[in-house]
Design a protein around this nucleic acid. Structure first.
Length: 959
RNA sequence: GCGGGAGUUGCCAAGCCUGGUCAAAGGCGCAGGGCUUAGGACCCUGUCUUUUAGGAGUUCGUGGGUUCAAAUCCCACCUCCCGCACCA
């Protein structure tokens, strides 16, 4: 079957589903199940990786639908955010890079690209693209409820959400640092910078050393090392500026003066002073009340921090080395104190390092002077080791004995509170340039709005709800709790981007991770907006209060919102029917943010009965074992993949390669293998047309029994969302059962087994339907079933159909056959005669007695022998007491289930069962098979083998 | 450091939750055979050691423990990978 046929086959069934509108869900008398997935951000086509979460959710939805639930699986599109804006701006500027990317990687037609100067056009284009892909993948989505986050009605909804949060005191205001272009007067994100640099920054603590009336500020990442400061470093070659900062007179590098201006400080340049002039003077250390000298060092850069550095030679490799260099150089500066007096002050104790850790690292790395590039590495190593493993020594005031990690924040707060410190932000990559060419800075934004995720009561409620939620896989629950603990205030609005304006301050736009946390509720009413029942402009908060919180009365709300009361009532009922969300599916990268916010916001806004019931988290998708990324060029757009493989093979390839939390590895071979497998299953389906099922023979009862076990296993696996496991059972493990069944019935020369097989295969196809919906429909119909596989009821295991006798019989046949094959292999003889001896009946009785004892937990062999000898039926045991031990071992080496199964059927007539061997073995060996019981008087037994026969382990003679 | 995940027979990778049918699925590689003008593709057989009777021995990161029985449960240790934010 070629790909075109596949695609047409899939299209055929898609049309059928469409005609039947079977994925459109409306409230009815059934129990509901509400599945949602994080909606996509349409700034590029979706690739295989995106497909994973959606496919998992779709399988979940289809499974629950077949289980009889009224399943709602909707989809929306998240237009909110800044990246699309950046892309649009680049198109406006005719940026070749992005236009080429659209053209060659995303295959966007030129005509469309020309419109991309307008951000919404980009979103609309990829929205359509992604939606088509979802439809082609066979996702069972109710598209009547689709929306985007810039729809006016949605904006109203988000405004309502934010007013609710604010009423609850959960929205607070504060300052917030951002990357900023001074020319554009705008925050910059990655997409706004030359070379797509993320404008990330680090917070430094500025410690103010006093030089007479002036202040010499130093920026540090390690405020706790203030206790180990021995001197100040200054670059003698730099001309510093004297600046009035909020009433104080600071000496800083010119670059620093510029930076300070963006950090909410009044900055006024009043003079200049060279580094050289400062060398040799002394400054006062805050908190420690001592005087230390200013020394020269050329590693000090005016670009970094304040251009002034506090020196902690015991713990900072740069400082240690600069001090050594200075001692070696012997260059004299006027007023310089004797350098021998400047000694490192160790303040941190860390396992694996001596008294002066900086010296140790420098020696180990063979660093010779302060221009050595290895100093960076040394600094990094020591910083991290001391941060995580270091402890402050006795000379650190009240912080003595604390770990560095703990003390860092406390020392920072301590100095800040005393007024001897300040905060400075420094871009990590210097310089970062805006697309306009201007060098970016860090700006402290005033009046930034935050969601106060640090609110203790809120946290407490979320914790207790997480405890009650159904979270899959279970391992991830801890992670949620942990995230809730460390979450603090989060900026929830920004100054540009698509989205909803903050209702009480229209200069701000609500940020994307904050306007996407309760939208699942919106799906229950978006249908009405889409069908024209609602005019967004007349919607007020009272409308949402009425629908979601049962506040107010229909008449008032109706007159305000201009929505007829009966429609209002329908909407409210719809919400109350579908809410809460039963399963929220998402990638694991969203655990620390979106998924946790999702719980937080539901807890804050809705009554408890509407809090989300479950979350399902999945890992990502690798491409041939490697992470997918644009730069690696190994991203496969989903629609391309569908065109070259068909949707079902892709669905299965993604699902089968890993369990939930693991990373799934997608590769061509896997998809190819699966397609071959599905094709052979389809062919198989055509072979077994419906046929009347006569009376069941043993192997029929066996395959039907196995089918019941399969149903049980697959159902259990899916309920735990262990879809890989379910598919393994369904696709591969059950195959060997079918092979055996065919072999058996063919060996017997049967022609009436198609009917049984058709029923078995139909049940299997039914179970395959959530995973591979298209081929399942095809197979379902080829097998001659009416209706659709996707509308068949999920099979229930019928324990009555489990026939232990046939299970054990078939197992006996198989193991006897294996034994024969084994013997032939080891002895390398070509068999002419095969003789089988089954155990004497007293052995079978003894076996059952031993079995029941073992099942009771008694494995005392001596006791068993006594009891068996005492019994007339089994007294023959005394001839071979060792036999008991062998049987106990046989029994013990089997799982509990098998033991019970054997006990339930009692002694079996092995001779009768093994008769079937003749037909089975003849295909392989062309020899006659004779079967005797050990107790037959006139048996053929030249080698005296018969006596070794045990129950379920016949003796075999091959000649 | 905190949180999470992993270490299986030449490689990739199942099995572990729920102990026994586990010398341990499947794929790749390798060896032999078939098919073929040849190659490729495909099919069959083998692939820890040992064994001319279905067996025995030694294996699942390391070391202990529990158990009649441990890849699987418990404890300790070693190694590797991922996340730690205001970004969708």
């Amino acid at each position: 079957m070629n790909v075109m046929d596949w695609i047409q086959m899939e299209a055929k069934w898609r049309r059928r589903w469409d005609e039947m509108r079977q994925f459109e869900s409306n409230p009815d008398g059934r129990k509901k199940f509400f599945v949602t997935v994080a909606y996509p951000y349409p700034n590029s086509p979706q690739h295989i990786g995106h497909g994973r979460t959606y496919t998992l959710a779709d399988v979940h939805a289809r499974f629950m639908r077949m289980r009889g639930y009224n399943v709602l699986f909707p989809m929306g599109f998240h237009y909110t955010g800044t990246p699309i804006l950046g892309m649009a701006r680049r198109v406006q500027e005719n940026d070749k890079g992005i236009i080429d990317a659209f053209r060659t990687i995303y295959k966007v037609p030129d005509k469309a690209i020309r419109e991309f100067a307008e951000p919404v056009k980009i979103a609309d284009y990829f929205h359509r693209e992604i939606k088509s892909g979802m439809i082609e993948m066979g996702y069972s989505i109710d598209w009547r409820r689709e929306f985007t986050t810039i729809d006016p009605f949605y904006n109203k909804f988000i405004e309502w959400q934010f007013r609710k949060l604010r009423e609850g005191g959960l929205v607070v205001q504060g300052t917030h640092p951002v990357g900023w272009c001074p020319k554009d007067q705008n925050p910059v994100s990655q997409h706004d910078t030359l070379g797509d640099v993320e404008p990330s920054f680090t917070e430094y603590v500025v410690i103010k050393f006093r030089l007479g009336d002036r202040i010499l500020p130093t920026a540090t990442l390690r405020p706790e090392t203030i206790f180990g400061v021995t001197n100040i470093w200054i670059n003698p070659a730099v001309t510093y500026e004297v600046v009035r900062v909020d009433g104080e007179e600071w000496i800083v590098s010119p670059q620093c003066a510029t930076k300070l201006a963006f950090l909410n400080k009044k900055v006024e340049r009043t003079g200049k002073i060279t580094g050289l002039e400062l060398v040799g003077k002394t400054v006062h250390i805050p908190q420690r009340h001592g005087e230390i000298p200013i020394l020269p060092a050329d590693f000090v850069s005016s670009d970094n921090g304040t251009g002034v550095v506090m020196s902690v030679p015991a713990h900072a490799p740069f400082d240690y080395q600069a001090l050594e260099d200075l001692k070696k150089d012997g260059i004299s500066y006027p007023g310089l104190p004797p350098l021998s007096e400047v000694r490192p002050i160790p303040i941190i104790e860390t396992a694996g390092y001596g008294e002066i850790p900086a010296r140790d690292v420098i020696a180990r790395l063979g660093i010779e002077n302060q221009r050595s590039p290895k100093l960076e590495e040394a600094t990094k190593e020591l910083y991290s080791k001391e941060f995580y493993g270091g402890r402050l020594k006795q000379n650190t005031d009240r912080f003595a004995g604390r770990s560095v990690a703990e003390a860092k924040e406390e020392v920072k707060k301590w100095i800040l509170d005393s007024g001897d410190a300040d905060i400075l932000y420094e871009l990590n990559e210097n310089p970062v340039r805006c697309r306009c060419g201007t060098e970016c800075v860090v700006k402290l934004l005033d009046n930034q709005w935050f969601l106060d995720y640090s609110n203790p009561q809120w946290k407490k409620n979320v914790h207790s709800w997480i405890n009650e939620m159904k979270i899959l896989p279970e391992e991830i629950r801890n992670e949620f709790d942990h995230v809730v603990d460390w979450l603090k205030e989060r900026a929830c609005a920004r100054q540009h981007g698509l989205g909803t304006n903050l209702p009480w301050d229209k200069n701000w736009i609500i940020e994307s991770l904050s306007d996407s946390v309760i939208y699942m509720a919106y799906y229950t009413i978006s249908k009405f907006a889409n069908s024209g029942d609602i005019t967004a402009s007349s919607i007020t908060d009272s409308f949402f209060d009425y629908i979601f919180l049962e506040k107010g009365d229909a008449q008032t709300v109706s007159s305000e919102s201009k929505i007829p009361p009966e429609i209002l009532d329908l909407m409210k009922k719809e919400f109350q029917y579908y809410y809460p969300v039963n399963a929220r599916h998402s990638g694991r990268d969203l655990v620390p943010n979106h998924l946790t916010f999702f719980i937080f916001n539901h807890v804050a806004i809705f009554p408890k009965k509407y809090w989300p019931e479950g979350i399902v988290v999945n890992g990502s998708v690798l491409m041939d074992g490697k992470k997918m990324s644009k730069s690696m060029g190994n991203i496969i757009p989903l629609r391309d993949a569908i065109r070259s493989h068909g949707a079902d093979p892709i669905r299965l390839a993604i699902l089968i390669s890993a369990e939930l939390l693991q990373d799934a590895d997608f590769n061509q071979e896997a998809v190819h293998g699966i397609r071959t497998k599905l094709e052979s299953m389809m062919e198989e389906s055509s072979r077994f047309k419906s046929e009347k099922v006569g009376s069941l023979e043993q192997e029929d009862r066996w395959i039907v029994s196995r089918l019941q076990q399969l149903i049980d296993r697959v159902t259990n696996s899916i309920q735990k969302m262990r879809l890989r496991e379910a598919l393994h059972h369904l696709l591969y493990e059950f195959d060997s059962d079918i092979q055996w069944y065919l072999r058996r019935s063919e060996a017997k020369g049967r022609h009436d087994h198609a009917g049984v097989l058709r029923e078995v295969l139909s049940t299997r196809v039914s179970m395959l339907s959530p995973f591979a919906p298209y081929v399942s429909e095809e197979m379902w119909s080829r097998l001659g079933n009416p209706g659709l596989a996707s509308q068949s009821a999920w099979p229930l295991p019928d324990t009555v159909k489990i026939d232990h006798l046939s299970i054990q019989s078939e197992a006996l046949l198989r193991s006897a056959l294996d034994d024969i094959r084994n013997i032939v292999k080891v002895t390398k003889i070509s068999p002419k005669n095969i003789t089988i001896y089954t155990a004497a009946s007293w052995k079978a009785k003894a076996y059952q007695k031993i079995l029941s004892r073992v099942l009771e937990g008694d494995i005392n062999i001596g006791g068993m022998i006594k009891a068996l000898i005492a019994d007339r039926e089994t007294e023959e045991i005394k001839k071979d007491p060792d036999f008991v031990k062998k049987m106990v071992n046989d029994i013990l080496s089997e799982p509990e289930q098998e033991r019970k199964s054997k006990a339930s059927i009692g002694p079996v007539d092995e001779t009768k069962i093994l008769c079937e061997l003749a037909s089975l073995a003849s295909a392989e060996y062309e020899v006659g098979i004779q079967i005797f019981s050990e107790s037959d008087k006139d048996k053929y037994d030249p080698k005296n083998k018969a006596r070794t026969a045990r129950p379920y382990k016949p003796a075999i003679l091959i000649e």
